[in-house]
Design a protein around this nucleic acid. Structure first.
Length: 342
DNA sequence: TTCCAGCTCT
DNA sequence: AGAGCTGGAA
């Protein structure tokens, strides 16, 4: 808090005890940088100085004020909550964490922020800044942002939270994360907590906070070529990097978009050094295969060949030996489908 | 051009 | 778990 007194930015919502203005600033600052949110706060305050004014405003005016800030459901929730506070709470915001939490657009973070800053309730805030600072300070490797981490960090902070100065403490915590203990690189050289910071002592500042593995599953198309000649089949083996290290599967092509039968036929004839006349397309089977980071649209194209295919990196095997190879589950899925279908 | 940061709701 | 937006950094 000493650091805060010396370093905090003079922001307009810090000069008020008005729960309405504190709420307004917190909603605007959700997912928004201070520099970007500041002019919006000033325009809202100027046009709608009280919660009643905001409640009375036409939705179009509220949306117009919000234009350009993004996450527009915040504006709808803002207006809806203003109407409820003005109409059902006599213009007064609930003065507890639990009460605030019931309002639209107010989640655990915002409820804690308003309750502590406006009403000095001793409830810890846990936002992105706090996750960053505290996970570094204590070298907590639990993935941040989950409900579990929320509870864990709250419990930890409860031990540090001064009961009489909860609002000040919380604001100091967040401001510290925003200005000093920044994503990268943090300013460790001038940090007053450097000698106590566990991550700093470990030399692992950049290992914290631990992010839960992001689930950007990319969609890809895998075309497996099931090449048969009598009781012979051809497989290829993955190398020891990337997906399915060292496992075996039918030779395949990977594409960004789907392919039609003609595309595949052409590709197969070229890459296996066969002519179209030597290939009989016997059918295909589709399935979706999900991995942690991939949504594989799998297509199994079945061909009977009149000549032995020639291609670098493919191996001829006997059909009966197929299951003695180490195979990805996607291959197992296909084999089961074939057996069940025959 | 791509990646990342940032809370709540569903 | 995923959607919802924008601006700034890599």
């Amino acid at each position: 808090m000493n650091w805060y007194h010396a370093n905090s930015r003079p922001l307009p919502w810090r000069e008020t005890g008005d729960p309405y203005l504190i709420w307004l600033s917190e909603i605007i600052l959700q997912q928004t940088r201070v520099e970007q949110g500041l002019p919006y706060f000033e325009r809202f305050r100027s046009s709608f100085p009280t919660v009643e004014k905001l409640a009375e405003a036409p939705e179009s005016a509220v949306m117009k004020h919000w234009q350009g800030l993004g996450y527009y459901s915040r504006a709808r929730n803002l207006h809806q909550t203003a109407k409820i506070v003005a109409g059902q709470h006599q213009g007064k915001f609930p003065d507890t964490y639990a009460g605030l939490l019931r309002l639209k657009g107010i989640g655990p973070y915002t409820a804690a922020a308003i309750a502590s800053i406006a009403f000095n309730e001793a409830v810890p805030v846990v936002d992105g800044n706090v996750y960053r600072f505290i996970s570094r300070y204590l070298a907590i490797d639990m993935p941040v942002g989950t409900p579990t981490a929320q509870r864990c960090f709250s419990e930890i902070l409860l031990n540090y939270l001064p009961q009489e100065q909860a609002g000040l403490f919380n604001q100091a915590l967040m401001e510290f994360g925003a200005l000093q203990c920044t994503p990268r690189p943090p300013d460790c050289e001038t940090c007053p907590f450097r000698s106590d910071c566990a991550a700093y002592k470990l030399g692992q500042i950049d290992h914290f906070p631990v992010k839960s593995t992001k689930t950007k599953v990319k969609e890809v198309f895998y075309h497996f070529i099931v090449m048969e000649k009598g009781d012979k089949l051809w497989l290829s083996q993955r190398d020891d990097s990337g997906l399915w290290k060292k496992l075996w599967h039918f030779p395949m092509l990977e594409t960004e978009d789907d392919l039609n039968a003609n595309d595949v036929m052409d590709q197969v004839a070229i890459s296996f050094q066969l002519t179209a006349a030597q290939l009989i397309h016997k059918g295909n089977w589709k399935t979706v295969h999900l991995l942690s980071h991939r949504k594989i649209q799998a297509r199994f194209w079945q061909f009977e060949s009149e000549a032995a295919p020639r291609k670098k990196g493919i191996f001829e095997i006997n059909r009966g030996d197929l299951e003695s190879y180490a195979l990805p589950q996607l291959m197992v899925k296909y084999i089961r489908h074939k057996e069940g279908g025959i």
